[in-house]
Simulated scan of single mutants.
Amino acid sequence: MTPELDHPIRTVRDLAQVWEFIDGGHGYDAPQMFAVVIDADDRLIPTVVQIYDEEFEDGPDEEAMRQFLAVHDAALAGGVSGASVAVMRARPGGSAFTAQDRAWCAMTHRLMGEMRCGTRPLFFATDRTVGVVPPDVLVGATG
């Protein structure tokens, strides 16, 4: 664990620091998802799951995301462990949310709400920015 991340992850700013460290300021060559686990003592477990999702250019694949999150939910004993999962979507390009970004974030937020384990705020990153997904994006086009 790097010294900058060797502290409890309790606030959005703490989690942003994790994602900024993972981002590294180098940008992204393709759309991808990241997940980290934070234990019951709010400590980051030093394993990052990274999955490229460039094959879903026509929009988010709900079944693939449901399975991705179900694996994490099961690994965290459905909440019994007290651990939580944090997810970030990243893609190359500018910082403005596209229609596809909005659809992906709204779907992921909805599915994370169905998990039995704890979850942390959903983040989104591009080549230029890393941040928590704004509430108006999370509700999706239909509210």
Rank of each mutant, 00 (worst) to 15 (best):
D101L: 12
V48Q: 12
A64Q: 11
T11S: 02
L76Y: 00
A106L: 08
A141V: 08
W104H: 11
A86N: 01
I45D: 14
A40Q: 12
S84Q: 00
R91L: 00
R120Q: 10
T126D: 08
A99I: 14
G93E: 05
A16G: 15
I38Y: 06
I22F: 06
D73N: 09
E55T: 05
A75I: 10
R102K: 12
C105Y: 04
T108C: 15
D73I: 04
P121M: 09
L44S: 09
R120P: 05
A83D: 05
V71Y: 10
G78N: 08
A106Y: 07
A64N: 09
D101K: 05
H26I: 10
V36Y: 08
D101G: 13
A74G: 14
A16R: 12
V132N: 01
G140Y: 06
Q67R: 11
E4P: 13
D73H: 11
V49H: 06
E63M: 13
D39T: 02
D23R: 08
C105D: 11
Q100W: 11
A125G: 01
R89W: 09
A86Y: 02
L15Q: 00
H72R: 09
V48C: 03
A74C: 05
V139M: 06
L122N: 03
R13Y: 08
T11R: 07
Y28C: 00
P8E: 01
Q32G: 05
I22Q: 06
V36C: 01
P3N: 03
T119F: 00
Y28L: 03
R66H: 02
G78R: 06
L122S: 06
Y52I: 15
G78M: 07
A141E: 13
S95N: 11
I9K: 04
D41F: 04
A106N: 08
P92I: 00
P8Q: 08
R43P: 01
T2A: 15
A70G: 10
D127A: 10
V85M: 13
I51R: 04
I38N: 05
E20G: 06
E55F: 03
L5T: 01
R89Y: 10
R110Q: 13
V18G: 06
F124I: 07
A75E: 15
G94K: 02
G118P: 09
R120V: 00
F56T: 09
P135Q: 01
H72T: 04
M33T: 13
T98F: 09
G24E: 05
H109R: 07
E54H: 10
G25H: 09
D29H: 01
I9D: 00
T142D: 13
F21L: 15
Y52W: 13
V85C: 05
V49K: 03
E20W: 06
D39M: 00
E62H: 08
D29R: 06
F97I: 11
D14E: 14
S81C: 07
T126N: 08
P135M: 14
A35N: 07
V48D: 03
G78Y: 05
D41C: 03
D29E: 12
G78T: 03
S81N: 02
G140E: 04
R110C: 04
V132A: 02
G113C: 11
A125V: 09
V130I: 12
L76E: 07
M88N: 00
I51D: 11
E114Q: 07
F21H: 13
P121S: 03
D58M: 14
P31E: 00
R13G: 14
P8I: 15
P8N: 02
R89Q: 12
P60W: 10
T98A: 04
R120D: 12
G143S: 14
D53I: 04
G113F: 05
R10Y: 02
